Computed example of a mutant assay.
Amino acid sequence: MASNFILDGSIIPRRVKRMFDQRSEPRIDCPADKAILSFRGQDHVVQLVNQSASGAMIRFERTPNIGETLRFRSQERASERAQVRWVRDGKIGLTFLGKVG
């Protein structure tokens, strides 16, 4: 039986700010940069918030499902597959999976 729930980050609220940054690589802030996100067959220009070697945070008005695979392209990165890791308040966390094609 299919569920009517969408995992968009609102089901499990974070009330406490992250106390420790356990990420293994630096994030590069790039609030003026844009990227192209292919989402369910359509390309969208999105705001790039930050980026690292293994992922990115973007602003996007749509709500993809956690675990959904999208295509991501920015000035710094060629087109590659990315998986949605989290969604919250109009922001999406992506993990890069590898080059497309």
Rank of each mutant, 00 (worst) to 15 (best):
N4C: 08
W86D: 12
V84K: 01
K91E: 11
V87K: 05
I36C: 14
R23N: 07
G98S: 10
L70M: 11
S3A: 02
L70K: 04
P26Y: 06
S74M: 03
E68M: 06
Q75I: 02
S79D: 03
A78L: 11
R15S: 08
R77W: 00
L7K: 14
R73L: 04
R88H: 09
E68C: 07
N50Y: 02
A82N: 07
K34V: 14
K34I: 14
F60G: 01
A56Y: 00
C30A: 14
A78M: 10
M19L: 12
F39M: 09
V16R: 10
D29C: 11
D21K: 03
L48P: 01
Q47F: 11
I11N: 15
L37T: 01
A78P: 03
Q83L: 09
S54F: 12
P26C: 03
T69C: 05
A53N: 13
I92R: 03
G93V: 10
D29S: 15
F96N: 06
S52K: 04
R18V: 15
R85S: 02
A32P: 00
F5H: 04
R77Y: 00
V87H: 08
L7H: 14
P26H: 07
V45N: 11
G93Q: 06
Q51E: 13
C30F: 03
N50D: 15
V87G: 05
G67I: 01
E80D: 00
G98A: 11
S79I: 00
L97N: 05
F20L: 13
V49P: 05
P26I: 05
A82C: 12
L97K: 12
V16S: 07
E68H: 04
E25K: 04
P64Y: 02
R14L: 13
R73A: 08
Q42Y: 13
V45E: 15
Q51D: 02
D43I: 13
E80S: 01
N65G: 06
G41E: 10
R81K: 12
A32Y: 06
W86C: 03
G98E: 14
D89K: 10
I36H: 11
S54K: 12
M57G: 05
K34R: 15
S52N: 05
L37Y: 02
I6H: 13
A53G: 12
W86Q: 03
H44Q: 14
S74D: 04
A78Y: 06
I92K: 11
P26E: 10
L97Q: 10
L94R: 06
A82E: 04
F5G: 00
P64L: 07
D29N: 14
I58L: 06
N50T: 08
S74V: 03
Q47Y: 09
S79C: 01
R81V: 00
